[in-house]
Design a protein around this nucleic acid. Structure first.
Length: 426
DNA sequence: ACCCATGATTACGC
DNA sequence: GCGTAATCATGGGT
């Protein structure tokens, strides 16, 4: 309804001529209430409607005439705004892209560890197991337990904080993109716009994955520090070796190059170290795979629960919002108009680019670094934290390091969702 | 005694 | 030769 009023205002030249981006809706209403004829507007609308029935040549001529009309800029502005709203509502549905499998795995793991979703006993149970396995006095155990919980809570807090920042920037970028797409539609070819939007979406996905992967690594390293004593029936020397191995664990279920170098510095030959550790890594990968279905199920249950909760909340919200006052829309609409104007300026301030790629993504890029810095405080993380994108590596027959294609089972950090089982927890 | 976690071994496919 | 899957052996917990 307000859109129609605003269009009338724009077409009548009220406000639109004096305020190209703002329409005085109240003046229009007053005009309508006073019964002032809108003959000029009616003519233009008739012409627009008639164009569809005319031949191409006739339509072209008519289009040229309309383009030269004094009200064309105002009309175009209002149409853009209407289209923007339409795109927003359509996008809201269409943007439900199928989830990335790797992000799903990371989500499952974060859920299993109690980092995402509701705070659960996973970490506490792990800490209790660690305390028990440490074989220390009950007092020692409780200290380790609380320490573990504190650090896990710290990771959890950082993760949610960074995730919130990410979502905030993503929402902002989404608005910028939509507004930019509409306003740039006349200046850029559609394919070019599509390509740029795709680049930005990929960038966001990458940053999101980096954030989640870093959090997973932090949790796994934390757990390794508290659970390594639970390894049973292995010799003390081998346990020490494995402890050393785990504390320098690289991502993807493979040891890192620096890990190998560090071990050699300790005068432990690779040939001595490799059998145990390769078995260890091998078992981790296999048992993680075996357990992934279980955690998928758990994650699905949680997803259903979350969806139900969200639905109930949204139902309540819509009930609360339904008796909106007639005028509330016009003021909101006006605000939107001025905001989109600001956004437009923001976008064009970025190297003349219509899209906020450099600014937004560079801000986001710092989030993973923030997490890295914070997780280092949990200890034992510095060897791998800065390299979430480490390619999986293995030692070839010559003892040199090779990049390998990430196995499907180890695209998540070692431990993965299977980490609830102690096999993948240390 | 049973269960569970985990390292090690073996067979198999690529 | 390497990774994976199945299986065995072992030891701690209940």
């Amino acid at each position: 309804m307000d859109d129609q009023v605003r269009m009338l205002a724009a077409l009548s030249g009220l406000g639109a001529l004096s305020q190209p981006d703002g329409v005085d809706v109240d003046s229009v209403r007053k005009q309508q209430q006073l019964g002032q004829p809108q003959q000029d507007i009616g003519d233009i609308l008739q012409q627009i409607m008639a164009i569809t029935d005319e031949s191409l040549d006739e339509a072209q001529a008519r289009k040229h005439a309309l383009n030269c009309h004094r009200m064309k800029p105002a009309l175009f502005s209002v149409l853009c705004e209407i289209k923007e709203k339409t795109v927003l509502s359509i996008r809201g549905v269409q943007e439900e892209d199928p989830p990335d499998p790797q992000i799903m795995r990371l989500d499952n793991m974060l859920l299993a560890e109690g980092v995402s979703g509701p705070e659960k006993g996973g970490g506490s149970a792990a800490a209790a197991a660690a305390a028990a396995a440490a074989g220390g006095s009950p007092n020692d155990g409780s200290i380790e337990h609380s320490d573990y919980r504190a650090k896990l809570a710290q990771i959890r807090q950082i993760y949610h904080s960074e995730l919130e920042k990410y979502e905030q920037v993503r929402r902002q970028a989404g608005l910028l993109l939509r507004a930019g797409e509409i306003r740039a539609a006349s200046a850029h070819p559609p394919k070019e716009i599509e390509r740029m939007v795709g680049i930005i979406h990929r960038k966001f996905s990458s940053i999101q994955m980096q954030l989640k992967q870093s959090t997973c690594e932090a949790v796994m390293i934390l757990r390794s520090r508290f659970l390594d004593a639970s390894s049973v029936h292995i010799s003390t020397s081998r346990r020490a070796l494995l402890k050393f191995s785990v504390s320098h664990l690289s991502t993807h279920g493979f040891p890192s190059e620096s890990h190998c170098a560090s071990i050699e510095k300790c005068a432990i030959t690779v040939s001595h170290w490799l059998p145990s550790v390769s078995n260890w890594f091998g078992n981790k990968r296999i048992r993680y795979k075996k357990n992934i279905g279980k955690f998928q199920e758990e994650a699905n249950l949680y997803a259903v629960k979350t969806a139900v909760d969200a639905a109930s909340v949204s139902a309540q919200a819509s009930q609360a919002n339904s008796p909106a006052t007639p005028n509330s829309g016009s003021s909101a609409s006006h605000n939107l108009n001025s905001n989109s104007g600001d956004l437009y300026l923001t976008m064009h301030g970025l190297n003349g680019d219509t899209y906020p790629s450099s600014q937004v993504t560079s801000n986001l890029q710092t989030q993973a670094d923030t997490l890295h810095r914070a997780t280092r405080q949990t200890g034992g993380y510095e060897e791998i934290a800065g390299n979430p994108m480490y390619p999986p590596r293995r030692i070839d027959s010559n003892g040199s390091w090779q990049d390998v294609t990430t196995p499907s089972s180890v695209t998540s950090p070692p431990g993965g969702p299977g980490s609830v089982h102690s096999d993948t927890s240390n």
